[in-house]
């Protein structure tokens, strides 16, 4: 008889844990997605791929997938360069830099929904401070809640306000821990500040940048809080997460919700894999 590998034996608790925490709910989800199943109806019926067909043929699902990607792209495109810029500024030594580094971290510490509410109060027609300035400056009342582009701008502002500092702080940590010598060497070698930044600084912090970016992108794909607060998912701003919440979680439709969740999971899995694979060499 073959002896059981002690290493395998030791990892059984972990595997069991993984199974119950991850695989079990996931398999359960797949099971649910193939049934007509609501929390209030005791009869569960097998309906095959019907839920999936319904989801994929839903305009709202497709629109929300678009919105999710749209917000992911614009938020990321703003937050990364801005965060990097702030990190570079704060990586220099100047008077008050310590306080500036603390202040920049404050938004991260705020509860996301609180941030959204704060911005909503700032943008309420006739009542918010931003609207007040807009009227004073002659732009009139801005339709931040009902116009797709303006609402998107507000959503971007909210997300960028809260999460740009995340990039800034992580990149700042990376920047200040870089060795100084190559910078002196580069100066002596006659490199311009731009060349120093693009050829030395950026490549040096690239692994950190890739990791925070992947984390942030996966997080952005789950964007929901500002959507709920600003538009409640209206005017084309509904993201995948908001959509799932509205059509599955709220009506307690386990089957339909399961189908959306499975599709969502596949999407995230594929995306995460592409990203990680693409940047594997950089991270290592």
């Amino acid at each position: 008889m073959r002896k059981l590998n002690p290493g395998l034996l030791m990892s059984i608790p972990t595997l069991l844990f993984l199974f119950f925490w991850f695989f079990f709910p996931f398999l359960y989800n797949i099971y649910a997605s193939m049934h007509y199943w609501t929390l209030y109806n005791p009869n569960i019926q097998f309906i095959g791929a019907e839920n999936f067909i319904d989801v994929l043929s839903s305009i709202d699902f497709r629109n929300s997938a678009f919105a999710s990607f749209f917000y992911t792209i614009i938020c990321f495109a703003v937050e990364l360069p801005l965060g990097l810029g702030i990190a570079v500024l704060l990586s220099r030594e100047f008077k008050g830099v310590g306080i500036a580094r603390v202040i920049i971290a404050i938004p991260i510490l705020m509860i996301p929904i609180g941030t959204s509410i704060m911005w909503k109060l700032l943008t309420m027609p006739k009542l918010g401070l931003l609207q007040y300035f807009s009227e004073v400056l002659g732009f009139g009342v801005i339709d931040f809640y009902g116009n797709f582009w303006l609402a998107s701008l507000l959503i971007l502002l909210i997300d960028a306000w809260q999460w740009t500092p995340f990039f800034a702080i992580v990149l700042l940590a990376a920047l200040v821990s870089l060795p100084r010598e190559p910078y002196e060497a580069a100066k002596v070698d006659g490199a311009s500040p731009f060349m120093v930044f693009t050829k030395i600084t950026l490549p040096s912090i690239q692994p950190v940048m890739v990791i925070v970016s992947i984390l942030r992108v996966l997080d952005l794909l789950k964007l929901a809080d500002p959507i709920f607060v600003v538009t409640k998912g209206g005017s084309g701003t509904e993201t995948l997460s908001a959509y799932i919440w509205r059509v599955a979680f709220k009506p307690l439709d386990i089957g339909y919700g399961g189908a959306v969740a499975v599709l969502y999971w596949i999407l995230m899995f594929v995306l995460a894999n592409i990203l990680v694979r693409r940047f594997k060499s950089v991270i290592q």
């Binding site: 931040f144 809640y145 009902g146």
Partner: peptide, 25 residues
């Protein structure tokens, strides 16, 4: 009615509408 309401009313929730009404908008 939405056209006669403050901008963005298409996405109004109870809380926002109430703020607007009580603020005299």
């Amino acid at each position: 009615l939405l056209e006669y309401s403050p901008p963005g009313s298409i996405n109004n929730t109870y809380e926002l509408g109430r703020e607007q009404w009580l603020a005299g908008l």
